[in-house]
């Protein structure tokens, strides 16, 4: 096999890890609260800016900067729920979609206002590994590993704890969980916080690889939605697998043509698949 193709495939798998992490966060929020956060990728952008300023500007040690970003973005997630989602919870689904869309506008423009449109890099240069003449970026490798650890941690949390079980239960029967003593509003806050924390974690991983700018959300936001829908909105395992399918299409497509066209392939694949399986790849 062509060595560069192999390299593309490996990079695709590594990219898939971060996308899978984001898809998990978005799917968790959708599955439990039944709201699509159109602005999810822009919340990641906030996290990337937080890391940039903490580390590159104020010289906070990187691990501490990461920790602060994760906690900060988790708090942001809770605030988004309290101030934007909670007031429209009983509205038509499209109003909820639009409320988070308004937040998308706000976050992008506010970031432009505060930081300008410059591309900023935290300036951490990690080595490139060479394994049998294949070059693999160390940053991507770390991102992949951490994303997997994050996904496993989430899985254990959902599987083993009372709150986790309640979170899974609530997406199966919204009304009846109250009878079990579960306070729906509290679960929503917890889930928004976890969704935010996952976005914060993804921000850490992306900050190592990409420059941050106010519109970075537009580049991978639509891809995340596509992954979630492909896996079946709310289906976390489906989304996890779909992340790797899509990242492979992007990676291999990018190898044979250009980056933009590889995304065109991915989106087209998505549209066609929606016609074949309208409720996602893994719908029963």
């Amino acid at each position: 096999m062509d060595i560069y193709l192999l390299e593309a495939i490996i990079n695709g798998i590594l990219l898939g890890g971060v996308l899978a992490l984001l898809a998990l966060g978005l799917n968790l929020i959708f599955g439990v609260i039944d709201v699509v956060w159109i602005c999810y990728a822009d919340i990641v952008m906030c996290g990337m800016y937080a890391i940039f300023f903490l580390y590159a500007q104020y010289h906070v040690p990187l691990p501490l900067a990461f920790l602060i970003a994760i906690i900060g973005i988790a708090a942001l997630g809770i605030l988004v729920h309290l101030f934007i989602i909670a007031p429209v919870l009983d509205s038509a689904p499209i109003n909820q979609l639009l409320a988070t869309g308004g937040l998308l506008f706000f976050l992008q423009s506010f970031a432009t206002l505060l930081f300008g449109t410059d591309f900023r890099n935290i300036g951490v240069r990690l080595p490139v590994l060479e394994v049998a003449t294949i070059y693999v970026s160390f940053a991507r490798l770390i991102a992949f590993a951490v994303a997997l650890i994050g996904a496993v941690a989430l899985y254990v949390f959902l599987k083993r704890t009372y709150i986790g079980t309640a979170i899974r239960a609530i997406s199966q029967d919204r009304e009846i969980v109250g009878l079990m003593g579960v306070d729906q509003r509290r679960i929503y806050l917890v889930v928004s916080g976890i969704g935010g924390a996952l976005a914060g974690l993804a921000a850490c991983l992306l900050a190592l690889q990409y420059d941050v700018h106010p519109f970075i959300g537009n580049t991978f936001g639509p891809v995340i939605f596509m992954i979630c829908v492909l896996g079946g909105l709310g289906n976390m395992i489906g989304g996890f697998i779909a992340a790797f399918v899509i990242s492979q299409i992007i990676a291999i497509g990018g190898y044979y043509s250009s980056t933009e066209l590889s995304y065109v392939f991915a989106f087209t694949f998505f549209i066609v698949l929606m016609f074949i399986r309208p409720r996602g790849l893994f719908a029963p």
Binding site: Y162, T165, R168, A169, Q172, M180, V182
Partner: peptide, 18 residues
């Protein structure tokens, strides 16, 4: 109104949420 995709024991665990 069981939680159909949770196991029997997980349903019981939810029952003991308080």
């Amino acid at each position: 109104r069981l939680f159909p995709r949770l196991s029997v024991e997980e349903n019981l665990r939810i029952g003991a949420f308080i």
